[in-house]
Design a protein around this nucleic acid. Structure first.
Lengths: 183, 183
DNA sequence: GTCTATACTTCGATAGAC
DNA sequence: GTCTATCGAAGTATAGAC
């Protein structure tokens, strides 16, 4: 199962630079030219390591997607009442672990990409949303979950601080756990 | 003060189509070619009515910017305690009145445009953020305001419903008005 | 694995006829 | 006001030398 990962610095460096570029100017706004320049190689080298611009994006969000799938699996085993707090903390942790990618998905990717990588993500996000609402069927709760999801994913890109996790968990709790949630 | 507005249907139609395009695929993702095709005219016609792609964007967000400035002026006259609820409702109303443009500002514009139109917007958004927190100096409150701002602006693009205003106001209140806000 | 050079497409924008 | 035709720049991607 351990894929022999060639510790080629170039490939990883491309990913790092691309992540920053995508996060800053968006996927369409970023150019291979600029990325190559910042990495210190040529465009051709970029396209040797990745099949194309889309492939760079796919490779970039793959780890985040994997973590999201893991969270999904964990939440699926919980009942609604237990899933909600777990979803909140799990989501915040996920987003903090993949700051740049999270912002990307909620600005660009959701808009213009129907590609398989993102198609697989959509049902997972759907499940996460449901868990965040405590599996509520109230449309208002669903909207609140969307606000929290997008708001937190968008805010972490340029925020820092070691207590950020706690702050985000708290704002998510306040927004999502409505007073009549007790019964 | 009444600018003689030529009721040229073409100009308005360009704006409408461009707004939808920008909202769906982003500013950089949208092309004059596609917009022209959807309007049913040529690229040259687009660029007769507007100086360039940027000018279309500027014309598009101008009304929203005007409303934001009006809200800012209104909030400036209130003390912190009165400003917070007014900011919440005012912001939700603003965003509902300019759905597509609001989403744009929080996905594209904030990232890659330092242009005058957006530079003027930034301090207004800053003030709005401050008002949303009840002029709090707690960094946690500021982050909560950012989450609410971005989350709501991003969610209204594709959400409908006549009770949407109430739902959004409520989620904003829950997220922003913290328990220890009373003193 | 990395490069230079280049092919091909699409972009935003301009010129000039109508 | 709208068009066709075209420009130069930048985009992604490929070919082939090293």
């Amino acid at each position: 199962m351990l894929k022999r990962m060639p510790r080629t610095s170039t490939r990883d460096e491309i990913l790092a630079v691309a992540a920053a570029q995508f996060a800053h100017v968006g996927f369409k706004g970023a150019s291979l030219q600029e990325i190559a320049a910042e990495v210190g190689c040529s465009k051709a080298t970029l396209l040797y390591h990745f099949a194309g611009k889309d492939a760079i994006l796919a490779a970039l969000i793959a780890p985040a997607a994997r973590d999201l799938a893991a969270l999904d699996a964990r939440l699926a085993g919980l009942d609604a009442q237990a899933a909600q707090p777990a979803a909140i903390e799990g989501f915040v942790d996920l987003v903090l672990r993949h700051r740049q990618e999270a912002g990307l998905i909620y600005s660009d990717a959701a808009r213009f990409l129907q590609e398989p990588v993102f198609a697989d993500l959509r049902p997972l996000i759907e499940n996460l949303c449901a868990a965040l609402t405590g599996r509520s069927s109230d449309p208002a709760d669903r909207i609140a979950a969307d606000v929290v999801l997008g708001g937190i994913a968008g805010v972490v890109v340029d925020k820092a601080g070691d207590d950020l996790r706690e702050v985000l968990v708290n704002v998510a709790r306040r927004a999502l756990i409505t007073p009549n949630d007790k019964d």
